[in-house]
Design a protein around this nucleic acid. Sequence first.
DNA 1: CCAAGAAAATATATTGAGTCAAGAATTAAT
DNA 2: ATTAATTCTTGACTCAATATATTTTCTTGG
Lengths: 212, 212
Amino acid sequence: MTEGMSLRERKKLRTRHRLLAAATELFAERGFDKVSVAEIAEAADVSKMTVFNYFSGKEDLVLAPMEEHVGDVARAVRDRAPGESALAAVHGQFLAGVENRDPSVGMSDAPVVLRVRRLIVETPALLTRAHAFSMRSFDLLAEALVEEGEEPYIARIAAAQLIGTRNALINANHVRLLAGDPADAIAPDAVALAERGFGLLADGLADFATRA
Amino acid sequence: MTEGMSLRERKKLRTRHRLLAAATELFAERGFDKVSVAEIAEAADVSKMTVFNYFSGKEDLVLAPMEEHVGDVARAVRDRAPGESALAAVHGQFLAGVENRDPSVGMSDAPVVLRVRRLIVETPALLTRAHAFSMRSFDLLAEALVEEGEEPYIARIAAAQLIGTRNALINANHVRLLAGDPADAIAPDAVALAERGFGLLADGLADFATRA
DNA sequence: CCAAGAAAATATATTGAGTCAAGAATTAAT
DNA sequence: ATTAATTCTTGACTCAATATATTTTCTTGG
């Protein structure tokens, strides 16, 4: 696993893991805001500055793993089969994630995932940062659509609709997981809600919530 | 305008305006991050703590005026005519804003508005905070839809689609205004793009960006 | 009109996140 | 092995934000 790495690189990786472990431990114990970066540095036996060298902010000590998924949606659209619409690609990628119980679509009930998730929802700074990832996800999707020849402004509108829908679906999963439901119990509902949510997008909101 | 206010209240309002003016001035001159709150306090002839007494953070010195509009969309939906859909209400409210050259839909080319807008887009901290307002806007809209009897998860999905579309339209306006186009020049395009964007939502994305 | 009480502004101190310039350690090249 | 280039680490610093105590300013009942 670490072969082909220089001493420097191996050390770096170990330090990174020490920092993540120390931070998660302390945050889970006392909450995000009640732990200072200095304490984390001390627990991982490095200087405060080194923490910022490895992570671009205190928030990233929690959210770094999530960052790898910002390109998922755009990739799904780029890689879609001939004849498939962007919406179908996004829908399909979501369903695959549900099937795999993937944390990136809010479908893992692993204790460590839930603990981190709980930490995120009850910490405004983390929610904000998580939202920034979603923004990035949106940008990448819009870019992918533009590269396919869609008009930029239209691409951005469609991307907003697709990402917004997906986020709402992920959120619904989080709500249920944090309420204590096991992933296996909510998976069928997640699939059904996705059908309706993306269905709304496919068929239109024209008559939605029409006042009596 | 200020009748019915005690001397204290009038003074308070004036101090608030002094602070906003001083902050905007300094930020425009040297950039958000290069100005300290202490300097703003000094320029407005007030103590540092008073700044935090009037505004909940440095960011609000720029974004406070925007906060008043977080409820606009939800209100438009609540107040819509019988027979009108939620989408039509949001669309209508947007068109009205375009017509009035309202900054809240990105349609004012007043120099001071443009300066603030430029400041926001080039300052990550401000973008983040602005995004939080949009989040609030979304929550309020979802709430309004739930109160009308829509299922909560569906309401949140629809709200995400509506707010996302609207934000993308507003963004398009900002891009063009910052490129130097006058509001009168972009208004017709804004109306046309809204037609297409909300049209996408009304008629569905089913065939959008289908791969050849 | 004035004195007592309420509200607001100020001065000052503390905490904690994030930046910077300079030095220490690792790697690569001669 | 010596040196040069690169990368890591650090201590000292800046600044936002909070907390506390003191002073100034406004209101109001007698």
